[in-house]
Every structure is written in structure tokens, then in C-alpha cells.
Design a protein around this nucleic acid. Structure first.
Length: 558
DNA sequence: AGTAAATGGGGCC
DNA sequence: TGGCCCCCCTTTAC
């Protein structure tokens, strides 16, 4: 089964040409000699077997000195022959020449990576490095495991309850549940649009398209008025939008003079609201923090450099219990803890070092005493106590979320309903073969042990789900995958479903396209596109978009 | 169905 | 520091 077995089947090709020195233009020295002949020009004469004929058909003319090459297939990753990386069916075969794609260590591939078999592999379950007190040691070691968790077991929302397919016109970038209305989900996208979806009445959805004109990076409800929401965008503005009217107030604009080139265009990424201090905090792509007063919506003070100058600050988070504590993270590979009473460049209380970009950093939602970060080095890190030793994380959990491009960054998020502050949700980048389909699950991880508690997926969702949010009060997961939104609920609870045909909505644009294609003139036949759900689980019926992406993935295999 | 493009981070000079 | 090139499991439109 290893790729090497394919070696024998590579077609042999003979190419004629006058001299080899003439155009072997020195650039690729690491390429093996055989592959170089791929560049064979029209001078060459070739004897080709079967399927490679077209490549050389035009070159069968002038008789020149024949050289023999083999048109070996080569690995698209390392460009060497003898193996091939890529999908084989629904399973991805790694390039053996590279370090493990998952844990980044050399010597094995993702397929045999111990972290793939068990997420808790190599995780220290109860680090003792923070204390030298023997009493505490005894407590932690012997008594604490016997203290029953207040919440008996994690309830996992593992079944798609309803969805809006292709709701946004660009990929979803952030999600937020309404603080008081349990059925309202807000979503932001790459175009800057703000979606408001009442998933209780599935079909009730709105998209406000004129608030921002590029990527909506983060949003947070106004603590003094849950009918309005603050959002930070790469257009350099913070908006405060009334959800009823869609009327938006621009609280801050960092590019008042418009576009003056990329070196001056400021983009806003991290955003949080500190209700105790009544401020909205935002951070930009040059390392600066800004604040605005919620009551007056006026910009306060001057910006503070909180990360390496010129680097993006992608996340801000206020401590839920200690209003003076602020956590930031960004592209300078650090998460930093700040005291808001003395905010100035270089005055951070702690700097939590990472190997790569830190996509998110959050205080635990109830006690605020733990910190959870997601970094592009494929590790989730946990600091068990902000009052303890912050020199190194308590645990590093290997998890696949280092993405190439074109996706919203993955962020591990807490379950605010879990009183033990140990359950976390995060989407997975690499796929797993589930019944012959390559699916990207959403992982629930116990960060106390590193254990994978659950991986949820649906055969209809073939795209990656980087954006996930757990409901603050109910056992509901909202996920954003590409342009679509999904609401997940626990299978066991057997909650009354919305009317079947209303469960999965398809956006107009797509249903129109389909009607045209099928020569269908009825406009509101979107029920035809609804995934029918008999008994449990969605059926395998696929949307055109889905099946095409699925097909293209398949076609990529060799 | 096959392909190009969008576009972010990292490393190197 | 800035420009350039590379890059491993994408998604979408044409």
C-alpha cells in the first residue's frame, strides 16, 4: 500500500534531442535528472506509451540523438520520484520526505503520527511544576481526582439540526450568539457582511451588506444594549450596528483619508468589549491597540503598541472576573497579558511564547484563571493558572489546524456551560476517511487531559469548518463552513425538529441557478434542494456544489 | 471537467 | 526592512 509500489508502473519514455546542455538552464539543481526532461521542448522526439502521447505528439519530427527518460510521476510536494503525495480515495498520503504534517516532527508521516491515534499522546495530564507545596501536591494528586465534576458528562451537539447553505456570499469569518435571545445567531463574512439568523424559525434571516466593505474580523455585543453589536473590519473601522434596522454607526475609522497604499492602510482585527470600563478595545495590523468609550462612542486616548511593530494583532480578550486584565495575541508569535491600568508599549505582565502565529487566546469563561491559545504550529496550549508559572504552558495538545491559505483561522473556543472549564471546541483541518468520504470533523477536546471527547461531522458537509461557537446557555453548536452556517444539537435529546423542508435553507442565488439548469420555472422550489431527513442523520444526497467539490477532490487522486 | 484565481505566512537575501 | 518566491489535505467561478 505505500506509494513506492507504484514505481514499477511508471511509463518509460524515450526522447530524442540534439544536446542536453543547450537548454538545461541550471535553475533547478535539486530536481532529479529524469524529471528535467519534462521540460523537453519541441525539438525532442518521443516514443510514448498510451496516455502520455499528447505531451510529445508535437515533438515527433527532427531526428536527434535519442536519450532515454522515464515519465515518472513525481511527488507534488517534494518534486521527487518514487512516491506521490495526495489523496488516494478519501485518504491523504503524506510526502515521506517532509516532517509529519500534523505534529511537525520528522521521522514519520501523519498516517503513523502518534498524535493522530490519540490526541492525548505526549500530554502531561497534571503538571506539577508550578508548586513546591507538599500539601497542595497531595491534594492535587490524591483528592482532586475524587472530587466529582459538577457537570456529569459533556453533552455534545453532534447532529445537524438546521442550516443555511450558501447564506453568505463569501466565507464566514466569525459567529456570535445573541446574549438574551437563544435562537439568534450572528455571522460575519469576508466581504464585511453581517448576517442575522433566527435558527428557531429557520427561514428568518437577514444580511446587512453595507456596514463594512471588507473582511469582518471580530464582533461582540454591546453589553449595555443587546440590540446592537460592535464589529471590527479590515476596512479599518469599528461599527456599532442596530440589529433591528441595520443602521450602523462608525465608532472608529483608522483610514479617514482613504487608500494611500498598503503601508498606511490600517486594518482592525482583535476586538473585545470591557463592560466594567465601558470600552471597546480593538487592535490593528501594525501592532496597536485602540479604545473607544461605549457611552459616547468616542475614541479614547492614543493607540498603544502592544505587539511587535508592524505585525497583526488578531485577538483581544478581557478577563471575565478581573476587568483590569487583558489578553492579546498576534502574528509576532506571542500572546500577552496586560494590566489595563498601566497600558504602554512593553509593559505587558506576561508574554506567552509560541512557535508560530497565535490565532486566538482566551481566558477561561467562568473563573478567568486559565488561558487557551491556538497557534499555527498545530498545537493548542493551556495555561492552568494565570496566578501560577506562566513561563511555559501546562499542556500542549497537538491538533491539526495549520492551514495553507484561503480559510478563516481556526480558534479553539471554550464551552461556557462547562463548569470545570475543560471542554473546548475547534474545527480540524486534515480530513479523515469516514466510510469512504474525506470529512473534516469539528473536535471537542478535554483540555485537562488532552483527550478527544468527540468529533462531529456530517456526510453532507465536505468543506472545512474553521469557525465554531458553542451556545452560552444551550447544548448547541454553531459552525461556519465556507459560506454556510450549521446548527448542531445532541442526537440523544430528540428535540422537535422544525418542519422538515424548512430545516436546511438554500440561498436564492443557488436555487435560481439550479432552476435554470433544470429548466424549472418555479422560483420558490427551494424545497427540492432541501436535504431530506428521514429518521436520524442527513441522507447522502448532495448539492451540486458539494458534489462538485467532492468530485474535484476525488479527481485529484492519481 | 478542468483550471485559474484569490491571497496569508514564512523564509531568504 | 522589503521584495520575492514558495507552499501539503481549499473553494469557487468560469
Amino acid at each position: 500500500m505505500p506509494p513506492q509500489t507504484r514505481r514499477s508502473s511508471f511509463p518509460e519514455v524515450v526522447i530524442d534531442r540534439d544536446t542536453e546542455s543547450e537548454e538545461s538552464s541550471s535553475d533547478d539543481e535539486d530536481v532529479e535528472d529524469e524529471e528535467e526532461e519534462f521540460e523537453a521542448d519541441e525539438e525532442a522526439t518521443v516514443d510514448l506509451p498510451e496516455e502520455t502521447m499528447e505531451e510529445a505528439s508535437e515533438s515527433k519530427k527532427k531526428g536527434k540523438t535519442p536519450i532515454t527518460i522515464s515519465l515518472k510521476k513525481f511527488c507534488k510536494v517534494c518534486k521527487k520520484t518514487g512516491h506521490e503525495a495526495g489523496f488516494r480515495g478519501a485518504t491523504y498520503i503524506d510526502c515521506p520526505m517532509k516532517p509529519c504534517f500534523l505534529c511537525k516532527m520528522p521521522g514519520h508521516t501523519t498516517m503513523t503520527c502518534p498524535h493522530r491515534v490519540a490526541t492525548e499522546y505526549g500530554i502531561v495530564p497534571a503538571p506539577r511544576k508550578n508548586t513546591t507545596n507538599p500539601l497542595e501536591f497531595v491534594f492535587q494528586r490524591q483528592l482532586q481526582p475524587r472530587v466529582p465534576p459538577i457537570k456529569p458528562a459533556h453533552v455534545i451537539p453532534d447532529q445537524v439540526h438546521c442550516a443555511v447553505i450558501r447564506y453568505h456570499s463569501r466565507r464566514v469569518t466569525c459567529l456570535e450568539f445573541h446574549p438574551t435571545n437563544n435562537n439568534i445567531l450572528l455571522s460575519g463574512d469576508k466581504k464585511g457582511q453581517l448576517g442575522i439568523w433566527d435558527f428557531g424559525k429557520v427561514h428568518e434571516k437577514t444580511v446587512y451588506g453595507n456596514i463594512h466593505n471588507c473582511i469582518l474580523n471580530n464582533m461582540k455585543f454591546n453589553p449595555t444594549n443587546d440590540g446592537s453589536i460592535y464589529a471590527a473590519s479590515s476596512d479599518g473601522t469599528i461599527s456599532c450596528t442596530d440589529l433591528e434596522t441595520g443602521i450602523s454607526l462608525s465608532v472608529m475609522n483608522l483610514n479617514p483619508n482613504g487608500w494611500e497604499g498598503p503601508s498606511s492602510w490600517r486594518m482592525l482585527y482583535g476586538l473585545d468589549v470591557n463592560s466594567d470600563k465601558s470600552v471597546v478595545l480593538v487592535a490593528d495590523n501594525f501592532g496597536y491597540l485602540y479604545m473607544a468609550d461605549i457611552r459616547s462612542n468616542n475614541v479614547m486616548s492614543k493607540p498603544t503598541l502592544i505587539h511587535k511593530k508592524g505585525t497583526k494583532v488578531v485577538g483581544l480578550n478581557c478577563n471575565p472576573l478581573q476587568p483590569d486584565l487583558l489578553l492579546s495575541c498576534g502574528n509576532d508569535h506571542f500572546a500577552r497579558i496586560w494590566d489595563m491600568r498601566c497600558l504602554e508599549a512593553g509593559s505587558s505582565l506576561y508574554n506567552l511564547e509560541h512557535k508560530r502565529v497565535v490565532s486566538s487566546a482566551y481566558f477561561s469563561p467562568l473563573t478567568g484563571s486559565k488561558i487557551l491559545t491556538t497557534s499555527l504550529d498545530n498545537r493548542i496550549r493551556v495555561w492552568d493558572s494565570i496566578f501560577g508559572n506562566l513561563d511555559s504552558p501546562s499542556r500542549e495538545i497537538v491538533h491539526s489546524h495549520d492551514f495553507n491559505r484561503y480559510l478563516t483561522a481556526f480558534r479553539a473556543e471554550w464551552d461556557a456551560k462547562d463548569s470545570s472549564e475543560s471542554l473546548v471546541v475547534i474545527g480540524r483541518y486534515i480530513s479523515e476517511n469516514y466510510d469512504g468520504a474525506a470529512l473534516h470533523p469539528i473536535d471537542f477536546i478535554n483540555i485537562s487531559t488532552g483527550q478527544l471527547v468527540a468529533e462531529v461531522m456530517d456526510p453532507n458537509i465536505t468543506t472545512i469548518s474553521p469557525v465554531n461557537k458553542l451556545h452560552p446557555r444551550e447544548d448547541i453548536l454553531a459552525s461556519g463552513s465556507s459560506r454556510s452556517l450549521f446548527i448542531w444539537r445532541p442526537k440523544k435529546l430528540d428535540i422537535a425538529q422544525p418542519r422538515e423542508e424548512k430545516r436546511i435553507l438554500l440561498c436564492e442565488e443557488v436555487s435560481k441557478k439550479r432552476s435554470k439548469k433544470h429548466g424549472d420555472n418555479s422560483d420558490d422550489d427551494s424545497d427540492n434542494d432541501v436535504f431530506r431527513n428521514k429518521d436520524n442523520g442527513l441522507k447522502q444526497k448532495k448539492l451540486p456544489s458539494k458534489s462538485s467539490s467532492y468530485g474535484s477532490r476525488k479527481s485529484r487522486q492519481l
